[in-house]
Design a protein around this nucleic acid. Structure first.
Lengths: 208, 208
DNA sequence: CTCCAGTTCAAACGACCGTTTGAACTATGC
DNA sequence: GCATAGTTCAAACGGTCGTTTGAACTGGAG
């Protein structure tokens, strides 16, 4: 029996992403995770300390590249003068959908995990996600405000949470139940559709 | 000790709405519900049969007036010729936010319950909600398609699920964690903001 | 009063939960 | 070889879960 390329710790994180994304935090047991990861039940508390700490580690790992890419794009945009609303929306949506959906099977798993956790029923879990995406939030909001000078700060914030919510919804694939809707379209197309939808809403749908 | 005006069955439904809306289905135990409802733990299985049947009954009761109002508005609109997109969006959003948020404390509880269940982590639960709102869905989509002749059916369906998701998000109050956002605004204002947001997106943000 | 269907009750069922324990295994440094 | 730190293991901990049981209570009909 050869040693697996992935460490127990990595396998736990991978399976946690998948299972938490499928059944939510409360609906997924550590035993289900450890069995699927071919690990002992005690491995979770050895490597992470608790179920919630495992989730926290998984969220941090999943969000890191998204945050990095968003920061990079924001830097780049602000270096080139005043960004347009579309540029800012694109800089937010694409790292969440594209960067994560483009990398095949695992990308979709990660996206669903993030989308699910972002709007978990438990406020405790939601705050755990929020803490991970908070750093760029203020900066992003300020840029959005500058790009939409006619809209009030409250209106811009309203648009932002709507964008956040719609992204999470599409990431979590929770709307595949819709009528006559064949959601699993090309990730790129989905991103373009969502961006167009949001650009129109930000451009003409916010309180002045 | 006077007999309560509400029956055990009604108290169970009321508390179920509240608790399921707070913690989600998996995160809420029957014991928590029955204690808060001052009922015996066995009362749930006596009156409803199971935890899931209790949820189903609560969803049906909560959705009934919303569905009725949406149907009424759709009837009224279609009787007066071709409705505009804004009229259709209004006919969908307002019964979900207004009709339910206007009736004070309990309305907000019902709204949060519906919003939470609509995007529960478990697909089983989501389907349970979908079954309850399905009846008008096809009819509504057809009207929306007629009002937006330039958009493809796929684009209209895309807009519809976005509308559905944003409504559920605001109903569930899951975005109160946002930055500098003081979400608990007047329900009427929230409805107007959301409608304006969606009208702009439907009008100019869909694939032709 | 008796009867009976409807309802409530305390108690227990087996199953599963997250967590902990202490021994067993593994690999590396001396 | 031996010691040692890191990791994995089976087993069990107390607690909570949804559900079931059978007896006790309730209020009206005959």
């Amino acid at each position: 029996m050869e040693t697996p390329v992935e460490s127990t710790r990595e396998r736990l994180l991978n399976v946690a992403e998948q299972r938490f994304g499928e059944g939510g935090y409360e609906g997924t047991s550590l035993r289900a995770i450890t069995v699927a990861a071919a690990a002992n039940i005690a491995a979770v508390n050895y490597h992470f300390g608790s179920k919630e700490a495992l989730l926290r580690a998984a969220v941090a790992r999943a969000m890191a590249p998204v945050n990095t890419e968003r920061r990079r794009r924001l830097d780049q945009l602000e270096a080139g003068g005043l960004p347009t609303p579309e540029q800012l929306i694109r800089a937010f949506i694409e790292p969440g959908l594209e960067l994560v959906l483009r990398r095949g099977e695992r990308g979709a798993v990660v996206a669903r995990f993030i989308g699910r956790i972002a709007f978990d029923p438990s406020q405790r879990i939601r705050e755990l996600y929020a803490a991970e995406s908070d750093p760029i939030e203020k900066r992003y909001l300020a840029a959005l405000q500058a790009a939409l000078p006619r809209a009030t700060p409250e209106a811009v914030a309203f648009g932002y949470v709507n964008m956040l919510g719609l992204l999470a919804l599409h990431q979590s694939q929770a709307l595949s139940r819709a009528p006559g809707v064949t959601e699993p379209e090309d990730p790129g197309t989905l991103a373009e559709n969502l961006i167009a939808f949001l650009v129109a809403a930000f451009d003409r749908g916010l309180r002045s």
